[in-house]
Structures are given as structure tokens and as C-alpha cells.
Simulated assay, not measured.
Amino acid sequence: MSDPADLLGAELAQYRASSVSGGDVVSAVVADVTASGRVNLELGNGDLLLEVACPDSYRGRAAGDWVAVRLSARPVVLWRLGPDPVTTEETTTEQIAVQAALDTQVVRAATYGTGAPAGSGWQEATEVHVRKVDGRLEVYFRVGSVADPSPGTPDVPAPRPVTISPTASGSWRGGRPDEYAASPTQGDWTGRGNRRGAWFYGAAIQNACAGKTVATMKVQFSRKTGAGVNAKRPMHLYLHDHSSPPSGQLDLDDGPEELLSLSVGATGTATLPASWRSQLASGAAKGLAVYANGSRDYAAFTGGKITITFSA
């Protein structure tokens, strides 16, 4: 029996026989959400199931979720276990609605003519002033007398979030670019020396933050399959000061920080420390890197998109 699906089915059957009574539906915890939108599951005996399909009704998938899974040659998640997510969904919907309202300028009607407007409540404007704030238009009318109190001026909204993609990425070993590892890689699997990987952004991060107050910086990564063990391994993250890939050694600055741990195929988001976002915003640091010693945390990663939110 050499077919991978048959082998997996046999292992799951053995698991059912040893730990499940009365059926083949068990509970499992989501180890990670993968780049494809599927999930990696950890069973009660510690086994890891990779790329398990989920129903469309299972929304907001996240590591740590408990789910009911049907064990078979092709395992499938049936539903999520836990509290009703309506509260979280309501909050998210309200946030989206508020942002949409800020982005939309609404005028009920716009008409014109050669005479005075018909109807009551009109006030004659002797001057019109306009300005643009965060890309949106504000209009001020100067009137001779105030017959009806003016609505208040809303607070200036914070600048919209910005997402920045890396302009380049790669790996280094032995003080020079590693042509055998195109994706950023940490550690050493073969005994030929530790790899260090990096993502580069030019001056895009500094330019996006100029004149603004940064609230958060979050970066998304995915762990490649076929590099290291399948189980979760931490990313050993560093800052670097290269605007573009160096021809010699990749220098590592502040770090390491273990902000994220991923199983193979998984995607996750890490929030950068306040000191790191300050350095990236000012241009003192230019990008992110990974480095590990030996084979234990050997892993390769893709992604590197940084989402920046602002408070002012």
C-alpha cells in the first residue's frame, strides 16, 4: 500500500480505533491557516493533518480554533466549535461601515438656476472656502447671519492604512547570495552552513510614514512546504539596513524576535514591536530578515507584505 491517501486513511483508522468510540468525527485544534485557505489540524495524539478542507460556512478561520473533523482518507472540517461569532462579526461590520462613511462625501441634491432657491431654510453664502483633508473635500460657506446652527466639523480622520509589498527577497549563505534558496530561509538542513533570508522594500516604508504617526505595523508570512519538518517552527526575525539585496553578506541588526510560529503551508501575521516600527518609519532600518542556527528551526518563507496603520 503505497498511495499517500491510503496510508493516511490507514493511520486515521488506527487513530479512530485507539481514541474514538461511536463514530469517525472528532474534535481537533487548528494549528494554522494555510495560504490556500485550508487548515493544518493537530489531533489529540499530537499528529498533524495538513491542508484539511473546510466548508464555506467556516469563516474567520484562525489558529487555536476547535473544530469537528471527519477522519477519512480525505479529512474534512465539518464545523467550528465554540461561541457564536455574531458579536465579533458585528464589530467588524461596524468598523467597515464607519470607514465607508468617512470615504463617501454625501450631498442630497445639487441644483441651480437664475433665481433664488424655492423653499425655506436657505442661507445666502457670500464666500465659499474649500480644502482637502486626507484626500477628502471640506467646504465652508460664509453666511451673513446664522438662521440655523451649523453642523459641527468632524475630527480629521487618521490616514488610511497602507500595505507595502517587498521589492525583492532572497537568501544568503557563506557571506554571499545563495542561488539554491530563492525564498528567504533560516537555519541549516544539510550541514553546509546556516542560511539567512531577507525582504527588501527600498524607501517605500519610510516614504509611506513621512509626516504621519504610526500606530501599528503588521507583516504577513507563509511557510513553504518541503523545507524542514512539518510541525510549527518559530521565525527568528531581525531588522536589516539594506534597501536592496547586497552582493556580499546580509547584515543583521536588531533581533531575534520570535513573533510568529508556523507549520508548513501556513500563513500568519506578526505585529512588529514599537521600537522596530519606529526604526522602519524613520529609515534607520530598511527591511526584515530571518536567521537560525542548525536544523531544528530550519524553514523557508514567502510573503513579507507590511500593513501600516496610522493614528494621525
Rank of each mutant, 00 (worst) to 15 (best):
E127V: 06
P157D: 01
K132D: 09
A100Q: 10
A110M: 11
P117R: 02
V128G: 09
R131W: 10
G121W: 04
Q95P: 11
R160Q: 05
F141S: 15
A100K: 02
V130S: 02
F141C: 12
V143T: 00
T153E: 04
K132R: 03
V107A: 14
G113A: 08
T163K: 02
T114K: 04
A118P: 07
Y112L: 06
E94P: 02
G113W: 06
I96M: 13
P159A: 07
D155P: 13
V130I: 02
G135F: 02
G113Q: 08
V128T: 05
V133I: 07
L102K: 03
G121M: 02
G121H: 00
H129M: 11
Y140E: 03
V156G: 10
V139N: 00
D148Y: 13
P161T: 01
S150A: 08
P161A: 15
P149R: 00
T93Q: 13
K132S: 09
P157R: 02
P149H: 03
V128R: 00
V106Q: 08
E89T: 14
P159K: 04
T114R: 02
V139E: 00
V107C: 08
R142C: 05
R131Q: 12
I164Y: 15
Y140L: 10
Y140F: 15
S145R: 07
V107H: 10
T163N: 00
S120P: 06
A109S: 06
A116F: 13
T111G: 05
R142Y: 06
G152P: 13
T104H: 06
W122C: 15
P159V: 05
T111D: 09
A118T: 10
E90C: 07
G115W: 07
Q105A: 15
T114D: 05
Q123K: 03
E90I: 14
L137R: 00
Q105G: 15
D134K: 01
V139S: 01
A101Y: 02
A100G: 10
T92L: 14
G121A: 08
E127L: 10
I164T: 07
E138Q: 08
A118L: 12
A147K: 03
Q95F: 14
A109G: 11
H129P: 03
E94W: 12
W122P: 04
R160S: 10
G152N: 05
T93N: 14
T126A: 13
